[in-house]
Nucleic acid binder design. Structure first.
Lengths: 214, 214
DNA sequence: TTCGTAATTATGCAAGTGTATAATTATTCG
DNA sequence: CGAATAATTATACACTTGCATAATTACGAA
C-alpha cells in the first residue's frame, strides 16, 4: 500500500495537447531548451511523460508543434493589431510599429523563447519553413502599410523599404528585450517611429495617437 | 595489452585553454549548446575531459571564458575596421556599416553561436555584463562615427541616432544570417547604407568606396 | 450494470551527462 | 642521469535524459 496510483480524469486530445505545448513553451522561455525535458514538461502540464509520446510521438514532435503554435500566435497577434489600426495610412503604420516595440512584444522571456528555437530552426527544414513564413508574413504586413502611404516611389523601392523598416523594428526589439533597463519606457517606440519615418521620408511622430491606441 | 595508454605532449596552459575554447565555440556554433558536451569539446581539442576541469574548474567556467573570448574577438575586429577606415567622416561610417553587413560578420554559424549564448546571458550576471559591455562598445564606435559627421544636431539626439543605426544594422545582420538565400549579395549592405543615411539625414551611398575597402 | 477501449500512469532501461579521484607520464631541474 | 612535479589521462559514479513497454483506470456504449 506504499504507492497509491495517481488519480486522473480524461481531458481529451485537444486540452492535453494545448497543455503540453504551453508547458514546453514556458520552460524554454524560462530556462532555455535544456530546461524543457520530457519530465519537466509533463510535470508542468500536470501529466505523466508517457502522454508526450502518446500525443506527439516523441519530444521532437512536441517541440515542432510548439514552435508552430508560437509562430501562429505571433502572426495572429500582429494581424489583429493591423486590423484594429484606424485612421490615415501613416497613423496605421505608426500604431503597428508602436505595438511591436512595447510590452508584451518587447519582453526578455519572449526573446529567450525566440532564441531558444533559433538553433533548431537552423537544423530542421520544417521549422525553418515555419520561421521563414512567419518572417515574410510580418514583412508583408509592413509592406502593405508602407504601400498605402501617400508617397510616389518606384515599386522596387517598396521591398527595400519594408526590409529596412523590419530590420529597425527587429533590432530595437532585440536590444530592448536583451537589455530592458538600458532604455526608458517608450524610448524604443519613439526611436522606432522616428527611424521608420526617416527611412520612408514621412513624419510618423506628430501623430495624435502617440499615447495610446486601445 | 588491450588498452594502450594514450600518448601526449605537454603544451602548456595557454595553448590548451585556447584549444578548448575554440572547440567549445565551434560546437555551439554547429549544433547549439546541447552539442557542446565535455566529451565532445575534449575530443575536438584533442584532449581528455579531465583537462576542462584542470584549466577551467568546470564546464560553466569554460563556457564563460569562451563567451568572453568570442566577444573580445568581435569587439577587436570592429575596432580594427574602425581604425582602418579612411577618408571623410561619411565614408568612414559607410565602411563601418558595410563591414557589419557582409561576410564573415553576416554568417549563419556566427548567428547560431550568438543565439546559443543568449539564454545563458539572461541567467548569468557575469555573462550579461560581458554582453552589455560589448553592445555598448559597438554602439559607442557608431556614435563616434556619427558625431564626426558634418551635421548640426542637439547632443540628446546623438544617442538616439546611434541606437537607431545600431538597430538597423543588428536587424539586417540577423535577417541576413537567418535567411541567407533571401537576399541578394550586397543587398543587405546597400539597404543598410540607405537606411543609416536616411536616419542621419545624409547620403552614404554615392560614396566612392561602395565596391571595396580592403 | 457490465464490458470494451482508449487515455493515462507506472516501471524499466540503455545511453549520455558532468565531475571527482586516482593513476600515469612528460618535462624540468638538480 | 635521476628525482620531483605538474600536466595529462583513465576510471568510476551518481544522476539525468528520452523512450519503450506493460499495467491500470476512467469513461462511454450496449
Amino acid at each position: 500500500m506504499i504507492g497509491e496510483r495517481r488519480k486522473f480524469t480524461r481531458q481529451g486530445e485537444e486540452a492535453r495537447r494545448e497543455a503540453l505545448i504551453a508547458a514546453a513553451l514556458e520552460l524554454i522561455a524560462e530556462g532555455g531548451p535544456a530546461a524543457s525535458t520530457v519530465r519537466a514538461i509533463a510535470e508542468r502540464a500536470k501529466v505523466t511523460p508517457g502522454l508526450i509520446r502518446h500525443y506527439f510521438g516523441d519530444k521532437e514532435g512536441l517541440t515542432r508543434e510548439a514552435y508552430r503554435a508560437l509562430m501562429d500566435t505571433m502572426t495572429e497577434s500582429n494581424r489583429a493589431v493591423l486590423d484594429a489600426a484606424q485612421g490615415t495610412a501613416a497613423s496605421r503604420l505608426a500604431a503597428f510599429v508602436r505595438a511591436s516595440l512595447r510590452p508584451p512584444v518587447v519582453d526578455p522571456e519572449a526573446m529567450g523563447l525566440w532564441a531558444g528555437f533559433l538553433h533548431m530552426v537552423r537544423q530542421d527544414a520544417a521549422m525553418r519553413a515555419v520561421h521563414e513564413a512567419t518572417y515574410l508574413q510580418y514583412r508583408d504586413m509592413l509592406q502593405e502599410l508602407i504601400a498605402a502611404l501617400p508617397r510616389d516611389i518606384p515599386p522596387a523601392q517598396l521591398r527595400r523599404d519594408a526590409i529596412a523598416c523590419n530590420a529597425v523594428i527587429d533590432g530595437l526589439w532585440l536590444e530592448g528585450s536583451a537589455l530592458p533597463e538600458a532604455f526608458a519606457p517608450d524610448e524604443l517606440a519613439q526611436i522606432g517611429l522616428a527611424s521608420v519615418g526617416a527611412i520612408l521620408g514621412i513624419d510618423l511622430q506628430t501623430d495624435d495617437e502617440t499615447k495610446d491606441n486601445t
